[in-house]
């Protein structure tokens, strides 16, 4: 199943400062709920995500990297691909960032999408859809928090 969430917020920092933080993969990757970044370079990171929600507890192991990065235009696309432990199937996330100056600060457009295949998607009344929505929401909140906090 696929989910997409679009989120816009403004930050009191300059686009350059904001861009620096947003392109720090360790910070961005670590914002995903339950994520632990185990290694990160300028280009990519690896880690795992433990989704723990009520009865469900599933772990994905994976990596993320820039698939697009335009430091001039302040636009980047980061893709994360997780393989579920215990034959769960895969989860992938794509985050598209676009910064624009707005007054003194910066307006950030964040589009996140997530795909889940396999068992978690197969079972249970589409609950995973709600779960994913929630995870994406928390992810963007975290990013916003890091930038505005």
């Amino acid at each position: 199943m696929a989910m997409e969430l679009h989120h816009t917020f403004t930050v009191a920092a300059t686009p350059e400062d904001t861009w620096a933080l947003l392109t720090d993969l360790e910070q961005v990757g670590g914002c995903f709920p339950g994520a632990t970044v185990t290694s990160a370079t300028d280009e990519e990171f690896t880690g795992n995500v433990k989704v723990k929600l009520g009865p469900i507890g599933v772990t994905y192991q994976g990596e993320g990297r820039f698939v697009e990065r335009d430091d001039e235009a302040h636009r980047a696309v980061i893709e994360g691909l997780g393989k579920g432990l215990r034959g769960l199937g895969n989860a992938s996330a794509k985050v598209t960032l676009q910064l624009k100056p707005e007054g003194e600060g910066t307006k950030a457009d964040v589009t996140t999408s997530m795909n889940i295949t396999g068992k978690p998607a197969q079972f249970g009344r589409g609950v995973m859809q709600t779960v994913s929505d929630k995870l994406l929401g928390q992810f963007v909140e975290c990013i916003e928090g890091k930038l505005t906090g």
């Binding site: 009865p55 469900i56 599933v58 215990r86 068992k119 978690p120 079972f123 249970g124």
Partner: peptide
């Protein structure tokens, strides 16, 4: 049922 689906492994 969740354990049988192996959506958790306590």
């Amino acid at each position: 049922p969740v354990l049988r689906m192996r959506l958790n492994a306590p």
